[in-house]
Computed example of a mutant assay.
Amino acid sequence: MTSVIVESLSGNNTQHLAQLFLELWPECDFEEEMESCQEIAHSDTETAFLLKSGESYVAFIHVSLRTDYVEGAAQSPTAYVEGIFVKEGFRQMGLSKKLLQLAEKWALQKGCVQLASDAEISNTASIDFHKKVGFEEVNRIVCFIKELS
């Protein structure tokens, strides 16, 4: 595995997290993501961990405590993976697993007994990853919307 440094989200690296957010969700706006990352950095119910290789940030996981309904959860709050991303060129090296371990440790410290996540039904790579690292599929849904005139 490549040598990486783990960083917890802080005021010093929010910009880097926002940039990684845009790589995962390119339809998003940098300024909005920057604001979101600053909120996460000061939150008691959310956190993020970043992985740095050399001078480059190459991966992140964003985890929150959800108190609303979480499909398949046994208790509330439930720790929830809001996003996990590893840059191409750093995949298949165990970095996602490392990030999940950090998230699990944080969740346990917050009193959670489960970690939940989701993936788009068409994102087979993410679904396969989740199953590989021990997640159990609990439901599939297709969402619809109809414009009213």
Rank of each mutant, 00 (worst) to 15 (best):
1 M>Y: 13
4 V>F: 15
7 E>A: 08
9 L>C: 03
11 G>W: 15
12 N>T: 11
12 N>Y: 09
14 T>Y: 14
15 Q>C: 15
17 L>H: 05
19 Q>A: 14
19 Q>L: 06
21 F>K: 08
22 L>R: 06
23 E>F: 01
23 E>W: 06
23 E>V: 05
24 L>Y: 08
25 W>Q: 06
26 P>S: 05
28 C>D: 12
29 D>A: 10
35 E>D: 04
35 E>I: 02
35 E>Q: 06
36 S>I: 04
39 E>Q: 08
39 E>I: 04
40 I>C: 07
40 I>N: 09
45 T>R: 14
50 L>K: 07
53 S>L: 11
54 G>D: 07
54 G>A: 03
55 E>F: 04
57 Y>H: 10
59 A>C: 01
60 F>A: 08
62 H>D: 12
62 H>W: 14
62 H>V: 15
66 R>I: 11
67 T>A: 04
68 D>G: 06
69 Y>M: 01
71 E>M: 14
73 A>S: 12
74 A>E: 14
76 S>H: 09
78 T>C: 11
79 A>C: 04
81 V>L: 06
81 V>W: 07
83 G>E: 13
83 G>V: 13
84 I>W: 03
85 F>W: 11
86 V>M: 00
89 G>I: 11
91 R>H: 04
91 R>K: 13
92 Q>N: 08
93 M>I: 02
96 S>N: 06
102 L>H: 02
102 L>A: 03
105 K>Y: 05
105 K>E: 14
107 A>Q: 04
107 A>P: 10
109 Q>R: 14
113 V>Q: 12
114 Q>K: 09
117 S>K: 03
119 A>S: 12
120 E>R: 14
120 E>P: 12
121 I>S: 11
122 S>P: 00
123 N>T: 06
125 A>M: 01
126 S>C: 09
126 S>E: 09
128 D>G: 07
128 D>T: 09
129 F>V: 03
129 F>R: 02
133 V>Y: 11
134 G>P: 02
137 E>R: 13
137 E>T: 14
138 V>S: 07
140 R>L: 03
142 V>M: 09
146 K>R: 11
147 E>D: 14
